[in-house]
Amino acid sequence: MIDNQPLLELENVGVCYRRKRGVFGEAFWALKDVSFKLYHGETLGVIGRNGVGKSTLLRLMAGIIKPNRGQFTNHGYHVSLLSMQLGFTGYLTGRENILLSGMLMGLRRHEIYEKMDAIIEFSELGEFIERPIATYSSGMVARLGFSIALQAEPDILLIDEILGVGDEEFSQKSMKAMRERIKSNKTIVFVSHNAVLVQQLCDRVVWIEEGVTRAEGDTTAVLNDYHHFLHVG
């Protein structure tokens, strides 16, 4: 399943932000030295505590930002972050938001029309789809957001933590859909600090600590190191 040609390559990548407004101010390195490769068809877990640069890493892989040092190579694949409620506008109806959000995620208009029924069906919004989303409850907005996000089909999907949203029932349903997506032959990067989920879902794991790759490899082995580190630290 995993062939030898990597899709994405990171070599000693570092990303820095400026603490103050604008281009001036003290540099702050969110990522210092990260290296790993992503192969076709695998589910790669990225694990680390909060604030170790996981979000920055996702933005880097999605092509939103560029590294300040080191080498990041994308061998021509469409990478995108699973983003819920992307570009949602309160005064527009659910249907209009589906179109807008879908287009922002990179779908073409006709593709969205084809998927429209499936999206509405999955979101269980029914009649509400024709009303402005400002009139929705937060649970309904979350359901709509998830249903659209699920339809994005990039070559490489980046998932940040969240698998399921909404109330108990929808959460189960969305979690199931997402697990199916991850288990399929898609290339996925799953970022989390939840070791249990990573253990269940991922083929390989990269552990990042304070912007540096601490370990890369087999899920169980890396997670063991991670746990050991947590208990000692």
Partner: peptide, 19 residues
């Protein structure tokens, strides 16, 4: 793709403003 997005976002912004 982006032409479509530009036009639809323009429409959406105008719609949102009228709403």
């Amino acid at each position: 793709r982006f032409g479509e997005l530009i036009l639809y976002k323009t429409y959406a912004d105008l719609r949102a403003e009228t709403e």
